[in-house]
């Protein structure tokens, strides 16, 4: 069923500062940008918030820029922006790979990196990339700005450390040394929600992050530690399969996800050797 839209309120700020004041003074309000997740809930009648702050027009948050040897990606950068950015392709190719796997072209044109982070789905395609790259989430409110390490951003299923008056303004990615690798396994070859999604960096200190295998995107420190200290890929795989906590749902089963995660780890290790 489609919800009635008559009871919804849309606020349209003309600047980031105005948006921040609206978040402070007119809350509770939900920021929206590409609205690709929001419309799904609107159409299915499960949309709970009534008041929205439309930040789509705030172009200053759309920039992708070099920051020292790393990147600063504005929260409103779309997946298409990420895909086309020479900077992203050079410094964070695994993000370009993830962006290519998000939905179809229309969704890539509307969906934003900030929205993917804020929506907090354990299946968010870009989230393992940000986790493996050890990104910082830049949060801003009328009181100022703070930077939260990606690993500390999620506190549980669809919950984050963001305060009600804060907006995500950017993602900052430190320089990533080593080979980057990304793979998504879905129910079909395109336009699918992942059963397992993985991003990994091959370095003296391997970094591995997975989506759809727990309530949030996860890093797997025990597996990383084992690989760093020279364990065989078979040993690492067993550790990984014990370390993650996938569930049965309509897209897959826990046993299958565990197995596929192990296979993906082996693929990563082989293809980056």
């Amino acid at each position: 069923m489609r919800s009635a839209v008559a009871g919804l309120e849309l606020l349209e700020p003309r600047s980031v500062n105005e948006a921040l004041r609206m978040m402070r003074d007119r809350g509770p309000a939900t920021p929206l940008a590409g609205a690709t997740d929001l419309y799904v809930h609107l159409n299915s009648g499960t949309l709970k918030p009534r008041r929205f702050v439309n930040r789509w027009a705030l172009d200053e948050l759309r920039r992708i820029a070099s920051k020292r040897d790393g990147l600063s990606i504005g929260a409103l950068a779309t997946f298409t922006d990420c895909l086309r950015s020479p900077l992203v392709r050079r410094r964070l190719p695994m993000l370009a790979a993830a962006a290519r796997e998000v939905g179809g072209v229309q969704i890539q044109n509307r969906g934003t990196l900030g929205g993917n982070v804020a929506n907090a789905s354990p299946a968010g395609d870009a989230l393992p990339v940000l986790a493996a790259a050890e990104a910082l989430v830049v949060l801003r409110s009328t009181e100022g700005e703070r930077r939260v390490p990606f690993s500390a951003f999620y506190t549980g299923y669809r919950s984050t450390v963001m305060r009600a008056d804060e907006l995500i303004v950017a993602l900052e990615i430190p320089p990533v040394a080593g080979k980057q690798w990304f793979r998504k396994v879905g129910t079909r070859l395109a336009q699918a929600i992942s059963k397992v999604v993985i991003a990994a960096v091959r370095d003296a200190r391997p970094r591995i992050a997975l989506g759809s295998v727990g309530p949030t995107v996860v890093r797997v420190p025990r597996t990383e530690e084992a690989l760093a200290s020279g364990a065989s890929i078979e040993q690492a795989r067993r550790i990984l399969e014990a370390e993650i906590k996938p569930i049965d749902d309509i897209r897959s089963t826990a046993a299958y996800r565990r197995r596929v995660a192990g296979n993906l780890l082996a693929c990563f290790w082989k293809e980056t050797s």
Partner: peptide, 14 residues
């Protein structure tokens, strides 16, 4: 799964 996201019809790549 009463929506095309999770009711999987083949896409062109399949």
């Amino acid at each position: 799964n009463g929506y095309f996201l999770d009711y999987r019809m083949p896409g062109i790549r399949d």
